[in-house]
Structure formats: structure tokens, C-alpha cells
């Protein structure tokens, strides 16, 4: 499957890595693509390192093994860089996107494979300013769209609205949408 995109999410329990992984797949399915998403189940504690995975393809996704060589890695928490090799399994083609207050050079120094293409965004700050809470997961979806062009922004925002409308008010949804749009504009690449 040449058009298969595999995404790995790194976060800490409570940051919404699983929700974001699922939301991305749901939005892709909404757009008529095939999507698959699954969390990595370990001890589920607030603050513990967690991973989520998303596959997106134009064709049926039959594979059900773990994602070993992600095309895209999204890191929701910069403190993970001190303990986890987030570049594990990546190739020189892979893209890494960080929620961070650090600079690209500072990030690169912490990476085991420092030659990867990286994007940075202070998603915590955007989430704090727009949503009122430093929850970076949906914000990072905006950065992902900019970095990969994986799908239309409208599709993503429709998917987000659909997913959130059972849980949140329109006001909260609007704030999330604004945050995602800002992320799309503000993410920095090389």
C-alpha cells in the first residue's frame, strides 16, 4: 500500500493522545478514506507515557500489527524527550512534530536520530489561550495537517465537530476549531 500513512502519537496520560489518534482516523473515514486507530495499552495513569497510533489509506487497511516505522511522529509533551527515544523506528523520510516551548535546535539535541525533519509548535500555549486549558491534542492536529497535507482542513474540522458535539457546547467546539486553525498557521518547519 504505497499511499498508507502511519502516525505515532506520544503523550502522557491525560493529554489526549488516544483521543487525537482516534479523531484523526474518524475524520479520514468521514472523508471517504480508510482509517484505523488504536492506543497502546499499558498502565493507564495520569502523567504516564502513553502512545496512540493512526493509519490512513485510500485502500482498505488489512494489517493489524503494531506500527513499527511511522511516517509521522507527534510528541505532545517535551519532557518525554528526556526518557523516551521518540525517533524509534523512524526513517530519514519520517516527519516529527513537537508540542514544545523549546527551539528546533534544542529539540534536535535531544533526539537520538537528529537528522529527521522536524516541526515545532507551542500547542500548550495556543490551547491555554484559545480553549483555556493546556490540552494539546486537537491543536496538534492543525500542525499535522500543515506538515503532511493528509486531508482537507474542513474535513478535519467537521470530524472534530461531530466527535465533540455529544460532549461539549458549541462554544467549546468553536474554541477548539480556532485553536486548530491557529496551529495550522503557526507551526514552524525547517
Amino acid at each position: 500500500m504505497a499511499n498508507l500513512i502511519e502516525v505515532r502519537w506520544h503523550g502522557r496520560g491525560g493529554q489526549g493522545a488516544k483521543t487525537a489518534a482516534m479523531l484523526l482516523a474518524e475524520a479520514a473515514i468521514e472523508e471517504g478514506k480508510h482509517g484505523q486507530a488504536f492506543p497502546e495499552y499499558g498502565p493507564e495513569r495520569t502523567g504516564a507515557p502513553v502512545r496512540g497510533y493512526t493509519r490512513i489509506s485510500d485502500e482498505q487497511i488489512r494489517i493489524h500489527s503494531a506500527i513499527q516505522n511511522p511516517n509521522v511522529v507527534i510528541v505532545l509533551d517535551q519532557t518525554l524527550l528526556d526518557t523516551i527515544d521518540v525517533t524509534e523506528g523512524t526513517t530519514s523520510e519520517s516527519v516529527l512534530i513537537f508540542n514544545t516551548s523549546l527551539t528546533k535546535d534544542q529539540i534536535r539535541k535531544k533526539l537520538k536520530n537528529s537528522d529527521r525533519k522536524i516541526y515545532i509548535l507551542n500547542a500548550n500555549q495556543i490551547a491555554q489561550e484559545e480553549i483555556g486549558r493546556p490540552i494539546p491534542n486537537t491543536v496538534m492536529l492543525g500542525a499535522l495537517m500543515k506538515a503532511t497535507g493528509l486531508m482537507q482542513m474542513d474535513t478535519l474540522l467537521n470530524g472534530l465537530t461531530k466527535k465533540f458535539k455529544h460532549k461539549f457546547s458549541q462554544q467549546v467546539i468553536d474554541k477548539n476549531i480556532k485553536a486548530v486553525k491557529r496551529a495550522y498557521e503557526e507551526v514552524e518547519s525547517e
Binding site: 482516523a25 484505523q36 486507530a37 488504536f38 495499552y41 482498505q60
Partner: peptide, 12 residues
């Protein structure tokens, strides 16, 4: 259906 691999995996 396979636990987690299918039960907790979102698909089309």
C-alpha cells in the same frame, strides 16, 4: 473478535 486488536481498534 480479537481482544484489543479488534475490540479497541477504530476502523471503517
Amino acid at each position: 473478535l480479537d481482544g484489543f486488536i479488534l475490540s479497541h481498534t477504530l476502523e471503517r
